[in-house]
Amino acid sequence: MKLKKLSPLVNPQSIALVVVLLVNWALFPGFFNVTWQDGRLFGSLIDVLNRGVPVAILAIGMSAVIATKGVDLSVGAVMAISGAVAATLVTDGYPASVAVIAALAIGVLCGVWNGVLVAFLEIQPIIATLVLMVAGRGIAQLITAGSIVTFADPLLISIGTGSFAGLPMPVVIAIVLLFISVFVVRSSAVGLFIESVGVNRAAASLAGIRSGLLLVAVYGFSGFCAAISGLIVAGDIKGADANNAGLWLELDAILAVVIGGTSLLGGRFSIAMSVLGAIIIQAMNTGILVSGFPPEFNLVVKAGVIILIFTMQSPLATRLIEMRKTQRAVARKAS
């Protein structure tokens, strides 16, 4: 009985995370040391959480999009736009609150644009969002005039580097966003609607779901998440770097969702597992940094671990595990 209760926690993802963390610990004995410094927690483990946040937040929005059988390639570019908007507004003398709201609103607008292309013009999501992925970075560069716009506004900086109750502010933001989105998706029928549109949009529409509106909302939410990530990344370096902010992060976000077990074919999805996927990715990145491996190894190590996780999740592995279980059960009965 006890084992059954624990079983949702025993899955390939959490095993992978524990393994990665243990390997990090073996390579760098101080990995689990967390100390209290300047009114906040300080240590590699905190770094894993803090640095994992941008991808984790992207993965929250991306999970919903992928569950609708879509994909949002534009999130990295939207991050750059959001950071650029906020940074230029505060340097032009607007209050930080206005800058933050404007950045989030533009993020939602970018997402809605994607949603309209996908839902009403029925362009394939990968193509529809590719438009903004390419154009978005250009838009961000136009806003910042190609340079890194630095700012000294305390509120905007605190989004990226502040702390709350000893935790880095980005981690707090991510936790709050995770809880709200899981609550909204699972306590209402929204989650089911998303999954049904992902499995079969025509059937869902016939069943009375306004699939067009739902898709626009889902892409809008993804844009909103990207805008939050953009603000965090900009606040972290006290500047908006239109050339590099969020560059290739859309791929990490998709990877996080897939590691989390959501299928790219749409349908069943788990936001919490996607966030776990993002943390696994970051645990690898941080591990490589503290291990002292030469940088040429970074991508190889990452690829190796990811292949391992996917093998563990593959239908073949699941079947083998099931087979062993039944064999054991049979053996028990026989004895």
């Binding site: 760098f28 101080g30 240590g43 590699s44 770094d47 640095r51 890194i148 990344v233 972290d236 370096i237 500047g239 770097d241 590099n244 902010a245 560059l247 990145n285 941080t286 490589i288 940094l289 503290v290 002292g292 030469p294 940088p295 970074n298």
Partner: peptide, 21 residues
């Protein structure tokens, strides 16, 4: 020695790792 991809945020992240290590 690690790569920071010539960017500020990666530079910060890598240095954070170095400081702990």
């Amino acid at each position: 020695s690690q790569t920071g991809d010539f960017t500020r945020s990666k530079g910060k992240e890598v240095m954070e790792g170095f400081l702990k290590a």
